[in-house]
């Protein structure tokens, strides 16, 4: 086994060429994942609320958005942003931005469904009680329903974040310099340690994702206990 190849390139896997050149590797993966979850949360929240709106004008487009995105492979969404954005915008987006937009749009459809499930899982009485105190539907949503629903949904958000972190690897296909790209670059140059390289980066991804998964599970257990106490 040639673990020395992995050791020699470990810094490149973690940071890319930074600080001498562009940031890449695992650092880029994490940036994409963080940027992606931040954007996807707000966009997903918006779409999820539209999906539950009583106005068909908001509900149906949101429904179509969710179903179309969830029925399409992420790779296709990435290609769409990569090839269509310039036609629409008249100028191009750098690879990392196209990838980030694609990740946000893709993940937001799943977040929207999480938000909806969270709101629907609350007892109906919550909304009725809030409305009877004189709040409008929007106010009741904003101050009563959403805070509870989002809180309950934290484990699902974390799970989605794990998926997103894994999904960032697809950005490599359009040339974004993240961890998988760094691995193929080194693999292409050395060509003597593919097994070691791919095991090593699988472990890097695993550490991040597993820590998050474990965190979400503990949180879930705590929430169940908390809710049980509340009832």
């Amino acid at each position: 086994m040639r673990w020395d190849v992995v050791a020699n390139n470990l810094q490149y896997f973690l940071l890319g060429a930074w600080p001498n050149g562009e940031l890449g590797g695992l650092a880029m993966t994490i940036l994409l994942a963080l940027g992606g979850i931040f954007g996807a949360f707000w966009l997903g929240l918006l779409v999820g609320l539209f999906r539950m709106s009583r106005s068909g004008l908001l509900r149906w487009p949101a429904f179509a958005y969710i179903e179309i995105i969830r029925g399409t492979p992420l790779l296709m969404v990435i290609f769409w942003f990569y090839f269509l954005a310039p036609v629409l915008l008249g100028h191009s987006l750098p690879g990392s931005y196209s990838a980030l937009c694609a990740l946000i749009v893709f993940t937001s459809a799943y977040i929207a469904e999480i938000v909806r499930a969270g709101v629907l899982s609350l007892p109906k009485g919550q909304m009725e009680a809030a409305r009877s105190t004189g709040l409008t539907r929007g106010q009741a949503m904003r101050h009563v329903i959403l805070p509870q629903a989002l809180f309950n949904m934290i484990p699902s958000f974390v799970n989605q974040f794990v998926s997103l972190t894994k999904d960032t690897s697809l950005a490599f296909i359009i040339g974004v310099n993240e961890l998988t790209k760094a691995a193929t670059q080194v693999n292409n140059r050395t060509m003597n340690a593919p097994t070691e390289i791919f095991i090593a980066i699988a472990l890097l991804y695993f550490v991040i994702c597993y820590v998050l998964t474990a965190f979400s599970r503990r949180l879930e257990k705590k929430l169940v206990r908390y809710q049980a106490r509340g009832r």
Partner: peptide
């Protein structure tokens, strides 16, 4: 289950394709 759920599929594909050689 933990390992294969928590690593990207793309990396796994590369692993099976290029890595199976030495395994």
């Amino acid at each position: 289950t933990e390992f294969f759920r928590n690593t990207p599929l793309l990396v796994q594909i590369f692993f099976w394709y290029f890595g199976s050689y030495s395994v």
